[in-house]
Design a protein around this nucleic acid. Structure first.
Lengths: 225, 225
DNA sequence: TCAGCGCATAATATCGATATTATGATGCGC
DNA sequence: GCGCATCATAATATCGATATTATGCGCTGA
């Protein structure tokens, strides 16, 4: 399968959790395409599990905006559109800005160490071309926000992260060229956070998103997707 | 029973939807108390339906932060706390501010008529002491934001609304005294929206929330809940 | 030739039953 | 008398089967 896995260990406890994580990966990575009908029975076989866990997982994904439910007519992978992407990008900028500022405000030594570690792990995964890079990348970004002491806000950010990264996968290799200075951008953000330089951190972070975002919007606009 | 119903017609299609709406009401109104164990079998009998719809509904409510899931140990109604309430209030102010500004920016005649109508219905329900007031109240607030053209943001707002109003129910009649000038506040907001006076509308709306919020925080602080 | 009705097919939504897992009490050993 | 392991109980999580509902095709009649 060779699946990157944006999420946590998939060997976890309940079948529902496994199905949830697995399906989310499939959708985020585009293996299940936007708008694609998600037939219970098909997925049941694919994930080798019963219908109940599948349905529950799909319900959860519905709340994450990754799946659309049509009463009595099953589920589909959520559609994509330029508008949708713009919305995600805009919201993400607003909410992460908010969260990052709160996070830095509450900054503690533990948090500082946490982000340093998360950054390092991401870096290592990157140089090693590891499968884990995606997970580490998300972990780093969430770590930045983690001191915000606002679980709901963090949950929103996490959801938006997934929604956003889905578009990156859809753009696929078109995006590889611009592995540009992402690394340096990450370092800048990290440095600013350690220095408790809220403004720079926020500016850099948002710019980080907007740059990638603008590029993706371009692709979407040209109908490449 | 005499249940106000914060949500839509509960006679709708699927058992899952019914269970979802019903359970949400039960939790929001406090009939199912914070932290209370939600035993599948109990609910199954109470709502006269099977286990699958219940589980699916609970999964959905988990995503709404109204229910907590403990793997292999079932579900509980989400706990409440002063911190949690403050978080909801803060987030709600930020997000609704954002949404309201967008909404006014996109204001159309249709939207204007929509909010006037929603306001009128709420008023009528209020004077008639109708059961529907809660639903109308939410409808009015959501209508204000409805031109925002950002479904995800609106969904977040809707969720936060429910979370917030849950605390109002928990405070119960202690809150009745302060039916104060809520009516006039609503009118002010409506008027400002019609006038496209973004700043006033936003200020009034946020003040509306913060006033009620401060009062509730007070109650929570004194351990009245 | 085409629109509309009705049937066959396929998928969903739901139920009832089972296996698995937590929980609380009981008794044994120390 | 107290702590710990063990067992009975109760609840969850999951499965397989069924009933209900949508869907697409072919047929009829204009």
């Amino acid at each position: 399968m060779a699946n990157p896995s944006v999420s946590e260990p998939s060997g976890s406890a309940s079948a529902t959790q496994r199905a949830y994580g697995r399906l989310r990966d499939l959708i985020v990575t585009g293996e299940l395409k936007p708008g694609e009908k998600l037939k219970i029975d098909g997925l049941r076989q694919r994930l080798a599990t019963g219908a109940s866990p599948i349905r529950e997982a799909l319900s959860l994904l519905t709340s994450d905006n990754l799946v659309e439910r049509f009463d009595q007519r099953g589920f589909r992978a959520a559609n994509v559109s330029e508008n949708n992407f713009r919305e995600i990008l805009t919201l993400r900028c607003s909410l992460e800005d908010m969260a990052l500022r709160q996070s830095i405000e509450n900054a503690s030594q533990a948090w500082e160490e946490h982000i340093v570690l998360a950054h390092h792990r991401m870096q290592r995964a990157h140089t090693e071309q590891s499968d884990e890079f995606e997970a580490r990348h998300k972990a780093f970004h969430m770590a930045l926000l983690s001191a915000a002491d606002s679980p709901i806000l963090l949950k929103f950010c996490s959801q938006l992260y997934d929604l956003n990264i889905r578009y990156r996968y859809l753009a696929g290799n078109a995006l590889h060229y611009q592995q540009r200075d992402v690394t340096s951008e990450h370092e800048q953000i990290l440095t600013a956070c350690i220095a408790r330089d809220t403004q720079t951190a926020a500016d850099t972070l948002l710019n980080h998103y907007k740059t990638t975002g603008a590029f993706l919007t371009g692709l979407l606009g040209t109908g490449s997707l």
